[in-house]
Design a protein around this nucleic acid. Structure first.
Lengths: 109, 109
DNA sequence: TTTATATATTGCAATATTACGATATATTAT
DNA sequence: ATAATATATCGTAATATTGCAATATATAAA
């Protein structure tokens, strides 16, 4: 008894949660997967691909960008969005570290 | 032109989004990490560890459980929650497949 | 059976998210 | 300069999430 509560969360916990939350919507998963298949990754193409209006997609792109999942650079009249590999690698590491800390003998169910 | 909109999302996109969304909150990241370090994983312990009230933690546990991230079994008076390795493995695969589809020559930014 | 312990559920307020029409901005083409 | 194209922002309605006090349930201990 007498265990003191951790006052808050660590920076890493907050950052990881933000990134996972950004990917926690089917439209944003679909956007990421669409970007993977494109050499030219422009918002207007995505509008034609997904069942969402242009402002909604723009909003989803903004969230992915705020979380660092994607980056955008201006390409003339359009904008080129693409995936930031570093963040994806971090997430692979995060889940791999869960797996490696999961020892069957520790499992109670 | 004339590209038809995909009517909706795939089952896998929806399932993946649900799982990532479930992990998209610092309290739920902290809960998962706490479970990793415990042999005895009981909700009341988590209440002493996190800055949240018992009903709130119970709610977060429910969300993790609904998303399949954790499972709970009744252990007498308490409940033993632990992580479902299969789902974590699926997520590692998801992010690894993003990485393997990310060819630098395709990147426009 | 009464009491204590562990967890879940309900109800509710505060806040955040999602989606979109309307509109703004910025670049390119004419 | 005007028009067309690509994207962003604003305002707003509908819905979802978060957190908690109060209360319920269920098991174990006395």
């Amino acid at each position: 008894m007498g265990v003191s509560k951790t006052s808050s969360y660590t920076e890493i916990q907050i950052e990881t949660a933000n990134r996972l939350k950004a990917l926690g919507h089917p439209a944003r998963i679909a956007i990421v997967q669409f970007l993977l298949n494109q050499k030219e990754c422009i918002c207007n193409d995505i509008v034609n691909e997904l069942p969402l209006a242009q402002p909604t997609i723009s909003q989803h792109l903004k969230e992915l960008k705020n979380a660092g999942i994607i980056q955008g650079t201006i390409e003339g009249k359009a904008i080129c969005y693409c995936i930031n590999p570093k963040v994806i690698k971090d997430l692979v590491s995060f889940f791999n570290s869960i797996l490696s800390n999961l020892h069957p003998e520790d499992q109670c169910c």
